[in-house]
């Protein structure tokens, strides 16, 4: 990676302006994956002086500053209570502690990493993102739309729900990227998201709609839900797993996840 200049900005406006000045200007969050994602940077814009490293809570929600490290999110008591700690569970399985001390929640979202174990969880938690320019949008709106990358994420907000949850990362070794990951929450209604397809994570909206219409979640219903999920997912092959094997994993773990959350 080649960087011409490193700028620690004094305010978010300045950051936004610099960011949009030149396509080769880049925001740095934790920087853990920076050298893997960019080669040539003109101005590297640091937000380190903008106090974006915080976790605030009120009765209804938790607000997490974009520069909060994954480890801090993982270890936060309040985050740990949201839907049985599904976000903490997912983060705790990402690489090692030292990376999680470096990587930030904002960087993990803005990187739009298709192997992300966090995005599927944020999807089922219906996380709200707050951008400097565009304002509020859901994580689902963010990942399904294009061309938003020149905005700056300042914080995210997650509702303090206390539903049931299930998270499963399937990988070759504990340190590997997922072959597939499955996130499910249930607090009266179901939310299901699948990541590492290996393409970008997605909400299984048809499956959710189907499940949310049912009065009784029988084994039959679960089987039907799984087949709907398989039609709407966009599973494919990469070096970690074939499409066929991902289908087996999706089938197996959506089923197990559903069984667990309705227990």
């Amino acid at each position: 990676m080649n960087v011409n200049e490193y700028v620690v900005v004094e305010n978010i406006d300045q950051a936004y302006q610099l960011f949009n000045q030149n396509k080769k200007n880049q925001i740095i969050a934790g920087g853990a994956w920076l050298k893997l994602s960019v080669k040539e940077v003109n101005k590297l814009i640091s937000l380190d002086d903008l106090s974006l490293n915080y976790i605030k809570t009120n009765d209804k929600s938790v607000e997490i500053g974009a520069l909060t490290s994954l480890r801090e999110v993982e270890m936060n008591d309040v985050v740990n209570e949201i839907d049985h700690g599904i976000l903490s569970t997912a983060i705790s399985q990402i690489m090692g502690v030292s990376i999680r001390n470096l990587a930030t929640i904002g960087g993990s979202i803005m990187g739009r990493f298709s192997f992300s174990d966090i995005i599927p969880v944020l999807l089922v938690l219906d996380c709200q993102l707050y951008f400097h320019n565009r304002g509020e949008m859901t994580i689902n709106e963010f990942i399904t739309s294009k061309g938003l990358d020149r905005d700056i994420l300042t914080y995210i907000k997650i509702n303090k729900s206390t539903g049931q949850s299930y998270f499963k990362k399937i990988s070759h070794t504990a340190l590997d990227f997922s072959m597939l990951n499955v996130a499910i929450t249930f607090d009266g209604s179901f939310r299901i998201a699948i990541g590492s397809q290996p393409g970008m994570a997605m909400l299984c909206e048809q499956t959710m709609a189907f499940l949310n219409q049912q009065n009784d979640i029988s084994e039959d219903v679960i089987e039907q839900a799984v087949s709907i999920a398989l039609t709407e997912l966009k599973l494919s092959s990469n070096i970690r797993a074939s499409k066929a094997y991902r289908e087996v994993l999706a089938k197996t773990y959506i089923k197990r996840g559903l069984r667990q959350v309705i227990k």
Binding site: A32, W33, L34, D48, G96, V97, S98, I99, N101, L102
Partner: peptide
């Protein structure tokens, strides 16, 4: 060279981080 092995670990404000992926300026 890419955060995968832990050999380059140092403590940043008492917390372990991979120095191979922490920009010096940060």
């Amino acid at each position: 060279d890419n955060t995968s092995c832990g050999v380059c670990t140092v403590l940043l404000d008492d917390k372990p981080v991979p120095s191979c992926s922490l920009l010096a300026l940060k």
